[in-house]
């Protein structure tokens, strides 16, 4: 009963305030904010707290299980700069991030344009292209492992058919980084395609009719109508794919585990190795922070740059 009374008074104030959104005093419905408190608590405990803890750990030589550790200042970051493998690892991470993004967007847009034509069977093709999105990236990695593996790999069967020696694709640094990029692209090009298809369908036909009346060619229509009006979809796709590629982990673990040596390692798999194989938690935390900065900078820069180019 008490609560009901309070609620009634609440409602009266609210009606008096005329449901004004911003109020100098406490918002009449501010108690509703209690509804997001559970989510906020989880966020604080499992994201915010570990995030700051991670910065702290990166200034120590903690091994990941002892009770003791010492503060070593910026040593882990100094080590990172002097690490002979860090160059390869960052380069790989950028290839996985940036190149996957480029491929997924070009191919995804091409697929969307093609499957937007009313041709029989396009529904089935769309389903097939989208199917890998549903599959675990780890399993996707294993499936492609069978394709690229040395002994009895499907691709090597073809190589041998033409009388060549089988190639150890997954152990060869010339190949494996690009194979991983390819598998990531293959798996998620369906998302890019679907987002572009939705974008294409939202473009009003009138623009094209007007352009046709003015005698614009197909290419002109693409560059001056389709592409500018697709900018919101392009923004979403580029940012999503960048984040996905820069944090890539499962596919690398399935195909090469980052090997041989550091040849196909990304920051994420290197961190895994440093933490669990070398018990070097301080250094692993520093690598985690590097990854965080890299992903934040890339996605923020891409987002602000692309948003500015969207047609209002």
């Amino acid at each position: 009963m008490e609560v009901g009374g309070v609620l009634n008074r609440e409602k009266q104030t609210e009606r008096l305030a005329g449901m004004v959104g911003r109020n100098k005093r406490l918002h009449p419905s501010a108690w509703l904010n209690l509804l997001y408190v559970p989510a906020l608590v989880l966020f604080a405990v499992f994201i915010l707290y570990p995030f700051f803890k991670g910065i702290q750990v990166s200034f120590t030589n903690w091994d990941g299980y002892s009770q003791t550790f010492s503060w070593i200042g910026l040593d882990n970051y100094r080590r990172m700069i002097n690490d002979p493998n860090i160059g390869t690892v960052i380069e790989n991470t950028l290839i996985y991030g940036v190149c996957s993004t480029v491929f997924q967007n070009i191919i995804g847009l091409a697929y969307a344009l093609l499957l937007n034509q009313s041709v029989k069977g396009r529904g089935i093709v769309r389903t097939i292209v989208y199917l890998p999105v549903i599959v675990s990236p780890l399993i996707m990695g294993y499936i492609w492992y069978f394709f690229f593996q040395l002994q009895g790999g499907a691709l090597n069967d073809v190589v041998q058919l033409f009388g060549n020696q089988p190639v150890n694709f997954l152990d060869d640094p010339k190949w494996n980084v690009w194979i991983i990029t390819f598998v990531n692209t293959y798996q998620y090009v369906g998302i890019a395609m679907v987002i572009y298809m939705a974008g294409l369908q939202s473009i009003s036909k009138e623009y094209y009719e007007a352009a046709e009346l003015d005698g614009a060619s197909g290419r002109q229509r693409f560059w001056h109508i389709t592409l500018p009006l697709l900018m919101p979809a392009i923004t979403v796709n580029i940012v999503l794919n960048l984040i996905g590629g820069l944090k890539l982990f499962d596919v690398i673990m399935a195909l090469t585990k980052g090997g041989p040596g550091y040849a196909s390692q990304s920051i994420s798999t290197m961190m895994f190795k440093v933490y669990f194989a070398s018990q070097d938690a301080g250094y692993a935390a520093a690598l985690g922070n590097l990854m965080f900065v890299l992903i934040s900078v890339f996605s923020l820069v891409a987002l602000t740059y692309l948003r500015r180019r969207e047609v209002a």
């Binding site: 570990p50 991670g54 750990v57 984040i243 961190m271």
Partner: peptide
């Protein structure tokens, strides 16, 4: 935007 892997250690 935060991948859980970046805060794996803590």
């Amino acid at each position: 935007v935060v991948p859980p892997l970046t805060i794996l250690v803590p």
